[in-house]
Amino acid sequence: MTGELLLGPDEIARTMRRLAHEIVENNHGTDGLVIVGLLTRGHPLALRLGRLIREFEGVEVPVGSLDIGLYRDDVSRRGQPTPLRPSSIPADIDGATVVLVDDVLFTGRSIRAALDALLDFGRPARVRLATLIDRGHRELPIRPDFVGKNIPTALVQEVQVTLKETDGEDAVYVLNAEAAND
């Protein structure tokens, strides 16, 4: 497969630092903040944001993980079950400011499912959305509050985020259709 490298490890690290600062600034501190990453790749990003906020503010912010498999809108259309993992929400989210974290924001359907999943755990005062990459092509009225990088893409292209924790390296690639079909 061939593709174009859009972000390398250093750029991703810088982007994550900026996102952590923006999240704390937007929340006027860390009070009531809970960070929840979507499984699979949103979760390591959420953990990184948690570590950065502790570094900058000296405060431990609860970080959780959310599996959206049971909430997808295409459960009966896919023809095969989506693999499921347990969610882990380590804090009471009633009245909290929950920041949902994902690697790539695309159609918005995952975030719709994530909102349903999250609300089964409680009633947050507000929910924000942070994404490393926004590639456009929304199908639902959903917008991110914190964006690492906007990448204009064609629908036929594929954005692939790899992370040290899940894939061994930090990188963001754009794969074009021919490459994706290899």
């Binding site: 497969m1 593709g3 174009e4 095969q80 079950p81 490459a179």
Partner: peptide, 19 residues
């Protein structure tokens, strides 16, 4: 353009199937 290694896709493309 650069080479990109094959790696597990993030989606359920290669998820275990129930038959």
């Amino acid at each position: 353009m650069i080479d990109v290694q094959e790696r597990p896709a993030p989606g359920p493309a290669e998820a275990p199937a129930w038959r």
